[in-house]
Measured scan of single mutants.
Amino acid sequence: LEELEQFAKTFKQRRIKLGFTQGDVGLAMGKLYGNDFSQTTISRFEALNLSFKNMCKLKPLLEKWLNDAE
């Protein structure tokens, strides 16, 4: 859980630094990986307001997006 919290915090900082909005991330993930995510979902991930199971599902996809974006 602590690792997920740290990743969510780091993800948000890096996303902002790269100049992407939460909506941008959701759209890009849909185009790149075929998984559409709403701005709300990205927001809830960053705020740790998703279930643990959903957080765990999203984390590898967001890590991949972040690596591709950088």
Rank of each mutant, 00 (worst) to 15 (best):
58 L>Y: 05
68 D>C: 06
31 K>D: 10
25 V>S: 01
20 F>P: 01
35 N>Y: 02
48 L>H: 11
18 L>C: 06
68 D>A: 11
53 K>W: 08
23 G>R: 07
11 F>R: 00
42 I>N: 01
10 T>I: 14
14 R>A: 09
37 F>K: 04
32 L>T: 13
2 E>D: 12
35 N>T: 13
45 F>L: 05
70 E>P: 02
16 I>A: 09
25 V>K: 01
55 M>N: 02
23 G>S: 11
64 K>G: 11
60 P>N: 06
56 C>D: 08
14 R>D: 05
5 E>G: 11
54 N>R: 13
47 A>R: 09
68 D>H: 12
11 F>A: 04
22 Q>M: 05
41 T>C: 07
15 R>E: 00
3 E>C: 03
43 S>V: 08
48 L>R: 13
52 F>K: 11
31 K>V: 05
69 A>E: 14
69 A>N: 09
58 L>N: 02
43 S>G: 04
46 E>H: 00
54 N>T: 12
66 L>T: 03
70 E>V: 06
30 G>M: 11
29 M>C: 06
39 Q>T: 14
66 L>C: 07
57 K>D: 15
45 F>S: 00
18 L>Y: 09
39 Q>L: 10
13 Q>E: 12
40 T>L: 13
1 L>E: 05
13 Q>D: 02
16 I>Q: 12
57 K>G: 06
48 L>V: 06
22 Q>S: 12
29 M>P: 00
61 L>Q: 08
29 M>E: 01
40 T>R: 14
52 F>A: 14
31 K>R: 14
27 L>E: 13
34 G>D: 09
3 E>G: 04
42 I>D: 00
3 E>W: 03
34 G>R: 10
56 C>H: 06
47 A>P: 00
51 S>A: 08
51 S>L: 01
23 G>L: 12
53 K>T: 10
42 I>M: 03
48 L>K: 15
15 R>K: 00
69 A>S: 13
13 Q>V: 12
23 G>C: 07
36 D>C: 10
33 Y>L: 12
24 D>V: 03
22 Q>T: 12
12 K>P: 06
62 L>Q: 00
44 R>F: 03
62 L>C: 04
52 F>N: 09
22 Q>E: 11
14 R>H: 04
53 K>V: 09
42 I>P: 00
14 R>N: 03
68 D>G: 12
34 G>Y: 04
64 K>Y: 03
5 E>V: 11
49 N>F: 03
58 L>T: 07
40 T>V: 11
5 E>L: 11
69 A>D: 03
41 T>I: 07
33 Y>I: 11
31 K>F: 05
42 I>A: 01
10 T>Y: 07
39 Q>Y: 11
15 R>V: 01
16 I>N: 06
41 T>A: 11
11 F>W: 06
22 Q>W: 07
54 N>C: 14
70 E>S: 15
52 F>Y: 13
35 N>V: 08
50 L>V: 06
70 E>I: 09
1 L>G: 08
36 D>L: 14
40 T>K: 07
54 N>V: 13
40 T>A: 12
44 R>E: 08
39 Q>F: 05
10 T>F: 14
7 F>V: 15
65 W>T: 03
15 R>A: 01
36 D>T: 11
49 N>V: 08
11 F>C: 05
18 L>D: 01
40 T>Y: 15
6 Q>L: 10
47 A>Q: 14
60 P>F: 05
64 K>P: 02
34 G>I: 04
38 S>H: 08
56 C>N: 07
51 S>N: 06
